[in-house]
Design a protein around this nucleic acid. Structure first.
Length: 98
DNA sequence: CAACTGACGGCCT
DNA sequence: GAGGCCGCCAGTT
């Protein structure tokens, strides 16, 4: 799998996160089956426009620093419960079989 | 080729 | 729960 295919695979994975749920960078990497969380983050930074990037957060439930406020706002309008600037992953975490 | 970098994560205080 | 530390891994210097 070359880099372009990898980028496409990551973007498709993000697109498949349904409204109302979230995935971690690590979740996406695992789902794609290649690379790691940092690769996913790098791809979101570069190619994230065009996909629901706000549904990808850190494993701690906190969004990436740069986009944090907008991300939380978008998630809330998705219907995701936010408590103290954090997403409750136990509720909202993406399950690929959906 | 070595060093640095970072939309990260898990483990240990 | 919050930091600090270190591992990870691909891209850039």
């Amino acid at each position: 799998m070359d880099r372009e295919e990898y980028v496409e695979a990551v973007l498709r994975a993000v697109e498949s996160i349904p409204e109302g749920s979230v995935a971690t960078y690590g979740d996406i990497a695992e789902y794609v089956g290649q690379g790691g969380p940092r690769q996913v983050g790098a791809i979101m930074r570069e190619y994230g426009g065009g996909v629901p990037w706000w549904r990808v957060i850190r494993a701690s439930g906190v969004p990436a620093d740069e986009v944090g406020d907008e991300q939380l706002h978008r998630l809330r309008s998705d219907g995701v419960r936010i408590t103290n600037g954090r997403v409750n992953l136990r509720d909202a975490r993406w399950d690929p079989q959906d």
